[in-house]
Design a protein around this nucleic acid. Structure first.
Lengths: 224, 224
DNA sequence: TAATGTGAAGCTTTTCACAGCC
DNA sequence: GGCTGTGAAAAGCTTCACATTA
């Protein structure tokens, strides 16, 4: 109402909203009805000034001297993220990872409904995974149209990812979550986000490395 | 040698090094021996000024007027990330996701060797996954000591994560990759990084939401 | 009184643009 | 001539600290 910059919530804030939502869900399950920025920040693993600033981007949903109403805040954050509606999702690629994603409960609980599974391998097509029969790659376009899919998940090998991506985009998909270790080229209006399971491990190795020399008797003549 | 601020590569740079490494690997496989910042940046999906600044943090490994030697740069980036040595890793929790992680080729190819799999479920203990026999949770401490594990992956349900984490830390693990949807509390010297499979999907929904109203005949009286 | 919401300060990251070097 | 490496400017993000309000 009062000119809240609807266009322009900082990307860093958007990236943290799911974190807050998760923490709020836990609190709600525990029967907590009101929470201060300090408490919620601790539960989400951020500092309280950041949390307050983030929440203030969405509007003025707290009460000074009291805190935030948990359920009300869950609703507001969900709405902001677009999770008050259900999103039909298709998963392409049913290797080990696709399998895990299809069975992952965290999607359904956040308003994502896995409507179809697609794979290129004839041995996998027709099998039942997480209650769904795996469809052949040929059926991709038809499925997307029939189910009204706007968000797709790619969990294929790297080599197949760009081709699958092109077909998804051609069929009208405009948001893609890419688990394949490859860079996808897409038109302007399509958003791609990527998850690389090994990147975080590599970042850990970086930090581990600068403690290790002191503790393990491994590296001796390492100082060039 | 020439006083390169060894202590203090920006976090944002470290987070992108794995991306460059992957792009370089692909180029190397294609037989490319030299690459310009422009080309490598395109392959990694970043802009070239950023790439040059990032690489300059590691040292002066390019040649003006020419570009970067692909194999040499692979080595330098790997060394910086601590990937020239092998890291023994243990995965705790062998549900669908743990399964997928155990079978994930991207770990081994980056110097991470999955040495042991651990689960609490008696039905899973003793089964063979990705060539390894799953050990019981009781054996956790012994395995970590015997294998010299410094980096562990948690893929348990949220409820079990903190307990597993505490035991890992007590046994000397100092880097943890957490896939469980929960906040881990650890001592100062332990580094935790988390991957939440549904967070990226929620961020996509956020962006999808602000295109959708125009395209789908779903939301009608949405403007409060 | 207690805790939010927010200007302002400080810090990090990105981008620009060009000097320096091959 | 072409491309890296890097100061400097711009943008973005975090933290501080306190006025404001229930």
């Amino acid at each position: 109402m009062t000119s809240h910059a609807k266009q322009g919530i900082p990307a860093a804030t958007v990236a943290r909203l799911p974190l807050y939502l998760r923490a709020l869900g836990t609190l709600s399950d525990e029967g907590v009805t009101t929470v201060s920025s300090e408490e919620l920040a601790a539960a989400a693993g951020v500092n309280s000034a950041k949390l307050r600033k983030d929440l203030s981007q969405l509007g003025s949903y707290g009460t000074r001297g009291v805190g935030y109403d948990v359920d009300y805040l869950v609703y507001q954050v969900s709405r902001e993220l677009g999770l008050t509606q259900d999103w039909p999702v298709v998963i392409v690629g049913l290797g080990h990872l696709g399998h895990a994603l299809a069975n992952y409960g965290g999607f359904a609980s956040r308003g994502f409904e896995v409507r179809a599974l697609v794979d290129a391998d004839p041995d996998i097509v027709g099998t039942r995974v997480a209650g769904l029969v795996v469809s052949p790659l040929d059926a991709l376009e038809e499925i997307i149209n029939a189910q009204g899919v706007a968000i797709a998940v790619i969990a294929t090998p790297a080599m197949a990812a760009q081709d699958v991506c092109d077909r998804l985009v051609a069929s009208g998909v405009s948001s893609i979550l890419n688990f394949a270790p490859s860079m996808l080229v897409v038109p302007e209006h399509v958003e791609v986000r990527k998850v690389d399971l090994s990147i975080e491990l590599q970042i850990l190795a970086f930090h581990e490395q600068r403690k290790a020399p002191l503790l393990t008797p491994m590296a001796q003549a390492a100082t060039s």
